[in-house]
Design a protein around this nucleic acid. Structure first.
Lengths: 130, 130
DNA sequence: CCCTCTGTACTATCTAACTCATACGGTAGG
DNA sequence: CCTACCGTATGAGTTAGATAGTACAGAGGG
C-alpha cells in the first residue's frame, strides 16, 4: 500500500488518495473485506492532515467502495472490486480524453497525437517495472 | 480565431487562453506579424474580464510570443512560430505524460494503456473535422 | 488639438477549494 | 469502567483564481 502523492499534480490530495485506493482495489492490492489503514495512520504516512484522508474515505463510502465498522475502521465492500474496475477505466479515460481533446483543438492530426503518445509511453516505461 | 474556454477544465482561464493562442500560432492560424485581438475585444468575445485576457497576453509576452506596439496593439513576434511549435509539443506532452503516468501507477500495462487511448482517439475523432 | 483607441498597472474584493485544528460520539479490549 | 483507538462533524485559515474599478501613457485619425 504505497501511495504516490504529488501536491503539484493539479489534482487535490483527497482526490489522489481516493483514486489510488480505487486503483489498488481494481489491481487486487486491496481485497474485498480488507481493512484500509486508519485515517490517522494513512495521514501520518503521506504527511497530510487526517481530515484530508477522511475526506477521501468519505468519497469512497459514497461510491460504495468502503463501509464503516463502527469503532473498528473501514472495510472494502463486496461490490468494491467490480465498482473499482469500472471506475478506474472511466477515471483514466476521462483524463486521457481531456488531454487528447486539447491535442485535437491544437490542430494535431491523429497520427501526430499517436507519435506523441508513443514518446510518452517510452519515457514512462521504466517507471513501471512490473 | 475561435477559442474554446471551459471553466470546468481544471486549467485556469488565462492559461487556456495563452495555450490556445500558442497553438493557433503553431498551427498557422495566427501568422508572424499579425495583430491579436485587443484585450477588451477578446474579453468580450469569450465573456471574461479584460484583466484575465491581459494576464494571458502578459504571459505570452514573457514567453516571447507577442510584442507590444504602443497604442496599437500586440503583434506576433518573428520567433513566435518556432517558439510555439516547440511549446505546443512540450505542453501537450506534459499533459499526456501526467495522464499516462497515472495509468501506470494504477497498474495498467502498456498494451492496456494503448487500447484505452485508441478508444479515446475514436471517440474524439469526429470533433476534429480537418 | 482632441477624442478614442491601444496596453499596462494597481488595488480591492469575492468566491471557491483545499487544508487544518479541534472537539465529539461510538466501539473494543484490558 | 476507562483508556485508546476508530470515524465524523464543524468551523477557521489560507490560497488561487477571477472580477471589478480606476488610472495612466502612447498612438492614430478627424
Amino acid at each position: 500500500m504505497r501511495l504516490h502523492i504529488d501536491p503539484s499534480n493539479g489534482l487535490p490530495i483527497y482526490d489522489q488518495i481516493s483514486r489510488q485506493l480505487k486503483f489498488a482495489v481494481a489491481h487486487g492490492v486491496l481485497r474485498i473485506g480488507d481493512l484500509v489503514p486508519s485515517v490517522r495512520e494513512l495521514a501520518h504516512q503521506v504527511a497530510v492532515n487526517p481530515n484530508t484522508v477522511a475526506r477521501a474515505y468519505r468519497d469512497l463510502q459514497a461510491d460504495g467502495v468502503l463501509e464503516t465498522l463502527r469503532g473498528e475502521g473501514l472495510r472494502v465492500t463486496r461490490d468494491a472490486f467490480a465498482t473499482c474496475q469500472r471506475d478506474r477505466q472511466s477515471l483514466l479515460k476521462a483524463r486521457l480524453r481531456s488531454a487528447v481533446t486539447e491535442c485535437r483543438q491544437s490542430g494535431l492530426k491523429t497520427g501526430e497525437i499517436r507519435s506523441l503518445i508513443d514518446e510518452v509511453l517510452k519515457e514512462t516505461a521504466d517507471a513501471s517495472t512490473s
